[in-house]
């Protein structure tokens, strides 16, 4: 270990070696590892948003009136609720609903009387969520919130496909299902992609809310690492460095959005293949 440090000192000098050491201590490694939460929330949140979006768009375009109403209410309501609020509401409501169901099965009048807390009714019905469970609930919340936007984008894109294309397909003798899958959905993506790219950007930014759900994510660790320390026993003594950690997060998010933009451009070219050039 000692000799290892010495060649490092010789190679890069004392200051840089110190910073390399500081930025790779256990606390920082925890921070780097916490990026997995953000990335997982973005990926699984997006997949669920697409699923909810397709279901919502189908409901909204349904010929069956009650289903159409469900679709419209979902899209209208969830889009109107601030994401932070929904992010706090849904996991809490879900947790308490589970505790309520659990309480009906495991609580006895004695255990309820012995419990001092107002909620859950008895101690056995308490559900303490782990980080992974919170992460799952966060993904579902993101899926529901951005699924509503996705539903609207897809609904609009379905209507943007020129009617003539569909009529021509029918004239060739395609069945309703063939028209839907081969012509309608196939061309829908071209109109949906710009809107979906916007929804993806919003979803990426919403992953910074994970710390609201007790997930020790990149934002939480940045605050912990940057907050001033005055005690040598607790590590390097330094002032308020949160600005530096937050700048690192800015850079991360900007890089992700830049890469996403490039990826969506490629995706758009792929979706347009075989279609006439624009303009």
């Amino acid at each position: 270990m000692e000799s290892e440090a010495f060649w490092l000192y010789d190679l890069v000098g004392e200051d840089i070696a110190f910073w390399i050491g500081y930025l790779t201590n256990g606390k920082h490694l925890n921070w780097y590892a916490s990026f997995r939460f953000t990335i997982m929330a973005a990926v699984f949140g997006a997949i669920l948003a697409l699923v909810f979006g397709l279901l919502g768009a189908m409901a909204k375009a349904s010929r069956f009136a009650p289903l159409r109403a469900v679709g419209s209410v979902y899209v209208g309501m969830v889009r109107g609720i601030p994401d932070v609020l929904f992010f706090l509401f849904f996991p809490l409501a879900f947790e308490q609903a589970v505790e309520w169901v659990l309480a009906m099965q495991v609580c006895t009048p004695e255990s309820i009387a012995a419990t001092q807390a107002k909620w859950p009714p008895c101690r056995e019905a308490n559900w303490l969520l782990t980080t992974n469970q919170y992460l799952i609930l966060a993904c579902v919340s993101l899926g529901i919130i951005y699924g509503a936007f996705t539903a609207n984008v897809i609904h609009g894109a379905m209507r943007a496909v020129p009617k003539g294309q569909l009529e021509a397909a029918r004239a060739y003798g395609m069945s309703d299902f063939q028209v839907l899958t081969r012509i309608h959905v196939r061309q829908m993506w071209v109109y949906a992609l710009p809107g979906l790219s916007n929804v993806w950007m919003l979803l990426i930014k919403a992953t910074s809310l994970l710390s609201l759900l007790q997930v020790a994510d990149i934002v939480w660790w940045a605050g912990q690492l940057g907050s001033p320390n005055f005690l040598p026993q607790a590590g390097l003594v330094h002032g308020d460095w949160r600005w530096a950690y937050y700048i690192a997060l800015f850079v991360f998010y900007i890089l992700v959005t830049l890469l996403s933009e490039k990826a969506f451009n490629r995706l758009n070219l792929w979706a347009r293949r075989g279609m006439p050039e624009e303009g």
Partner: peptide, 14 residues
């Protein structure tokens, strides 16, 4: 700190 805190190794200490 020094009652309870996360040390540089990322573990609770104090």
């Amino acid at each position: 700190a020094p009652w309870n805190f996360v040390n540089d190794s990322g573990e609770l200490a104090g």
